[in-house]
Design a protein around this nucleic acid. Sequence first.
RNA 1: GGAGGGAUGGCCGAGCGGACGAAGGCAACGGUCUUGAAAACCGUAGCGCGAGGAGCGCCGGGGGUUCGAAUCCCUCUCCCUCCGCCA
Length: 426
Amino acid sequence: MLDLKLIRENPKEVERRLRTRGEPISLDRILKLDEERRQIIQRVEQLKAQRNKASDEIGRLKREQRDRDAERLIAEMGQIADEIKSLDGKLAQIEHELNDLLARLPNLPHESVPVSTEKSDKVILREFGEKPKFSFTPKSHVELGERLNILDFPRAARIAGSRFPLYKGLGAMLEMALVQFMLHYQVQKNKYIPIFPPFLGNAESFFAAGQLPKFADQVYFCPEDKLYLNPTAEILLTNLHRDEILDGSELPLKYCAYTACFRREAGTYGEEEKGLIRMHQFNKVELFKFTKPEESYQELESLVEDAEDILKELKIHYRAALLPSCDLGQQSAKTIDLEVWIPSQNRYYEVSSCSNCEDFQARRGNIRFRRDKTSKPEYVHTLNGSGLATSRLFVAILENNQQPDGSVIIPEPLRDYVGTDRLTPP
RNA sequence: GGAGGGAUGGCCGAGCGGACGAAGGCAACGGUCUUGAAAACCGUAGCGCGAGGAGCGCCGGGGGUUCGAAUCCCUCUCCCUCCGCCA
């Protein structure tokens, strides 16, 4: 959520910056509603002041047994009470529409974000390793998974439907090994506090993180209980400190969480996204920070590095990309993606997306901090990043580490967790 | 799922139609005293809109009754206890 005051004071500037996202955004309606709202507030508050004064007076008269004078005042106040009620009603209506419009506005892109309407206009910040060279035609992870007997899409479809995963045998071990390894690493080396959160959240939580109201169609919803299935732990972790005032001296707070993630992925069927690339359910270890405003961009850099550590440890070729304005998620002011190489498709795929949401979510979730005991509360900045999306990493490991005989070498750090150094076809 | 009990400021806790933005306690902040600290005493002190003013709003959320609601009524959410069910 953007600050209404900022919109009111710099409408042209805000509009210009929002439009760099490539959506046709107009603030006219918001400005008009805001104007109306403030006019009504002025009138209604005047009336309420009058009413409060009269109520005090009535109380006083009653105490002094001057019932006749009290009765006269009460009769006078009836009219004002009606007027207040009608104005309050009008005000509620205006604020409802205003809040809904505000809640759907995306965040302002940071000035360091390249402005473009082409998603391909990302800036490659750095690369690690190189694309593997094969003396044979590399197989896709779908084919490898089948031959190794570690993935079973047909049976997953029987149980749940298409686009659900089923890992089997050492495949299940490898997937869980990735989760374990990443959690251990981020907790022990990078000092994140581990959280095992609920996998469902309520509407307030999803609103605070920015998922609602705009993206309701992308999440699974249980109407009986009014609960939403977690699409990313970012949402759950954002709400860890919703409606709290944090102690400035304990910032930045760094959390990491493993969750299964569920997404409806409505209307995203693409032929190249076969197998595990885009699923209704996948696994992810999420990194999350609550920071002071002036520290958030340096914390974004270190968050990206923390996620990169995993790929370096696993020796997977990747690149870090600064996304252009048109490719930012609505909450994000700046996003850096990590992309791994997928040989069978001859392209890179995102395994991590690290964003600084500045105070966008903090405002929605009322997450604040105090610099010291006596200062006023201020909004924190929230940052999130996958560290990493396990299920896509699984794909990268299978495809990048495949051997001519169809076996797959397990990266060194995962071997103890998986219990073997190599997957071999039966 | 059934029956009951709760939700008040950073925390605990009183208030149950008018002098209540809310007693009291703890914690906090400033001061006095002290070489320093503790103790004691005095004082300040919630959040939001607004101009750090006036004013308005906020006692779990929403609605209602009333000239006036923390207080009465309806409704929702969450928490606790007991029963049922279950890992």
